[in-house]
Design a protein around this nucleic acid. Structure first.
Lengths: 214, 214
DNA sequence: CCAGCATAGTTTGTATACAATAGCGTCCAT
DNA sequence: ATGGACGCTATTGTATACAAACTATGCTGG
């Protein structure tokens, strides 16, 4: 995609993820155009994409707002994610290449290092955790699934999830990743599916057990 | 959405579904704007939406083409659909209202009538079949799931599916719908899930057994 | 005081003009 | 003849201007 609309997309998405544009707040095209330093046209493109990816929602008449997720929405999202990522893991188990397995191992090693740091390096954890899931989804070799998951996995609330976990939970996550890698190496489809299902479900439970979002 | 972009969306989608814009063919904004009688701006909006819904794909550099599905893509899509619609059915089973059940019964009665007609009324079958699934998904009361499924269920190749079924298969489909309604009425979550899974899978098998798309 | 409507202002929708870029063909040089 | 480079053309990207639609506010009449 061309420069301006891409930049606008990144910029607006950043506003949402950072919380500068809090859930429920109104997004007007002109204001965003000013912020991004582009005209309304690329902003509109960006907003369409963000809408498709569920970052923003349209109200009764065409006004756009930052998506607001209640606890029921969150539960729904985690359920869908568990189902779809489990499917991706199962597919990956039967198709993944040795190179991708190596990449996952390296990735998980970096996660472990981040957790082991003096104070757990949450930013590194987030980035590597995301990469881990991306590699897995890529290994599933299912473009449609990848498209669908991209819209779910990247939600603001998910991105902020890790900061709510304590070190024990982060360690558990890394351990589950390791088991998943084992399942991949063994090409055990059902094992991979089960591990991933549990992984996402436990992540949700840990999330729910922690303090509310605000 | 406003009038012009909505019309453009419907028009272009119609071109794709009817086959006037065959899979793999190039879509240029200006040509479409001429056809739709609007400017490029709403056409662009429409194309963005069609892209998100997987009707069209972007090539290396920004040119848009009508999506072309190989047999592997189709298998993948039916698999995802089976998984997601089964989830929708399970959710619907625990939430559906008596009114929605009545609507499903009426819908399926019309399907039966269409099949029983002198020559099976494929158009009616298609419309009612689609309505049936829409009601089910609505009953699942899961906006995210609905959004995701909308992109999958409405694919051109799926819409043309029914014309490849013989009367026996259409009748089987209606019978499975009836069983699904029973499961809903009984509020039996796992039954509903199983019926829907089998329903989509059998639809795919019948589809695959028939002649190739072209 | 309330209801309804008119109107002004804000926001989105559409069209058009122009800019940038990618694809492609031709032409020249080796 | 072949390879590369140049420029032309087709297509997409962006900006701006204007139109339509919705909101909200205040006014008027009951």
């Amino acid at each position: 995609m061309s420069k301006a609309s891409e930049r606008a997309y990144a910029e607006i998405r950043g506003l949402i993820l950072s919380g500068d544009a809090p859930p429920g707040s109104s997004l007007t095209e002109e204001a965003l155009a000013d912020i991004c330093g582009v005209s309304r046209t690329p902003v509109r493109e960006a907003l369409r994409r963000l809408e498709a990816e569920l970052y923003v929602v349209r109200s009764d008449s065409q006004r756009l707002y930052v998506a607001d997720w209640n606890s029921e929405d969150l539960a729904e999202m985690f359920t869908l994610r568990a189902m779809l990522e489990a499917h991706a893991a199962a597919r990956a188990a039967s198709r993944i290449t040795p190179q991708a397995i190596d990449a996952l191992r390296a990735c998980n090693a970096r996660i472990a290092a981040a957790i082991a740091g003096a104070e757990a390096d949450v930013a590194s954890f987030l980035a590597e955790n995301r990469l881990f899931h991306e590699i897995t989804i890529a290994a599933a070799d299912s473009p449609r699934l990848a498209t669908i998951l991209a819209a779910l996995v990247e939600q603001p609330v998910v991105r902020r999830t890790a900061s709510r976990y304590n070190r024990t939970e982060l360690a558990r996550s890394a351990h589950e990743h390791a088991e998943l890698i084992q399942a991949f190496a063994a090409r055990d489809v059902e094992w991979a599916r089960a591990v991933m299902t549990g992984h996402i479900r436990r992540a949700f439970h840990a999330f729910s057990a922690a303090a509310p979002v605000k």
